[in-house]
Amino acid sequence: MRLHDLAHARSGDKGDICNISVVAWDIAEFPLLERELTAERVQQHFGTIVAGPVHRYVLAHLGALNFVLHHALGGGVNRSLSLDAHGKCLASLLLDIELPD
């Protein structure tokens, strides 16, 4: 199944750093997200889009993970050549990840 079936997400930008919150629709499914959606998995998913390291913060009581993606915005909103300079779409692209059923 896809992450999109289990969670919603939102991107935020600060300088060249993008953060993406991933929130489980049903908190009962959060353990699966916490197990499968590691920082390494997210880094691998984004490939060359994210040049720097990825850090993960866990908020189990909210059923939420917060990913901080360094060097992810092509130098930052102002100087990025990307059509989506804010990285707003990255949250939706993350929801494309396939998870085991």
Partner: peptide, 9 residues
């Protein structure tokens, strides 16, 4: 919950 984590590290 989405807004709580918006632009937060």
């Amino acid at each position: 919950t989405e807004q709580l984590l918006y632009e937060v590290h």
